[in-house]
Nucleic acid binder design. Structure first.
Lengths: 174, 174
DNA sequence: TGTAATGTAAAACGTTCGTTTTACATTGAT
DNA sequence: ATCAATGTAAAACGAACGTTTTACATTACA
């Protein structure tokens, strides 16, 4: 595993566990097992490191969303929260912590959420046989809500959201 | 408006806009229009101030949720996001920024979310004429999801969630 | 009138922040 | 054998952090 990969992975873990602002660069160097000189050569700055973490997470998350049904979206989310934990959406958290005032971060978040929304619209269209923007919006809300609720309600939130989505899909078909 | 009230209101606004950790005490004193000596007499510490902001927000938010129907919950949320803005849930944001490691904050968040969940279960029971824990969980997810989605999708997320909840309620009645 | 409370303005506390620099070691290709 | 790249360890940078203190002004009540 090369230095940049190791750094990005360590940063993601610490940002997720302790928050972005609360995670200092010294903690990062210790966790990544490198000197601050090397860290800055690879990362550029803390903001750039945050943006890189988000871009990498977007890649990993979106790869999992290459499915053909709405139900599979929720199955994927169930796996995701089991593997990655339930501390809320790292994208919106980064935006909230920076007030949206750091361009590279705001951009990474906007990119991810646009792709996320588009993917849901596509999956709904495939599953339903036609486009339905309102239904897609509702599926998006259930996915966001399950992610958020899982923080304090646990992983069962995802299955409850999954069942709700099934009802909405069923009704849209009838 | 007394000093403590003014301070709490200013803190809530700044924490919401810029994030908890990114908001320094000097910015707080300037916004509240008081010296740091007075601020610390009223607030105790930054963590205590954060907890006080949350407790006060809980009071204000929960007062609005004294309604008799699920649809009214979403009507309330529509008002709320119009008045208070759409930057996500300040409770979960505070927990995420502190990693859950600040007892007074973690406790304020846990209290609020427990009350929130209970209130939804009550409203669902009144509206439906019987208890339905799974449906209540789904309504909670739609409320959380609308709050979260509104950050990047706008206020229309709330009306989409409202419509979804109406479908779930209708089906539960049949 | 005097005293206790409550406030302001501003300096100072020690710590930690993100970042850069200095000095030196290890490596790999020519 | 050597040059350039890449790394470490650690000190240092100025700025900002949360918090306390010093010195002084205003108010309100006995």
């Amino acid at each position: 595993m090369d230095k940049t990969t190791k750094l990005t992975a360590a940063a993601e873990r610490l940002f997720d566990r302790h928050g972005y602002m609360a995670t200092g660069m010294d903690r990062l160097t210790a966790a990544a097992g490198m000197s601050s000189r090397t860290l800055y050569k690879h990362a550029g700055s803390k903001a750039q490191l945050m943006a890189r973490v988000l871009t990498e997470r977007d890649r990993r998350f979106m790869a999992r969303l290459e499915v053909q049904s709405v139900d599979a979206l929720f199955a994927t989310l169930e796996d995701w929260v089991r593997v990655e934990g339930m501390r809320g959406c790292l994208f919106l958290r980064s935006r909230a912590e920076t007030g949206g005032d750091t361009p590279e971060i705001a951009e990474a978040v906007a990119m991810h959420k646009a792709a996320f929304h588009l993917r849901i619209e596509e999956v709904v269209a495939v599953d339903l046989g036609r486009q339905d923007p309102v239904l897609a919006e509702q599926v998006l809300i259930l996915l966001e809500g399950a992610t958020q609720a899982a923080v304090y309600r646990g992983a069962e939130s995802v299955s409850a959201a999954r069942a709700a989505a099934a009802i909405l899909m069923e009704r849209a078909r009838a």
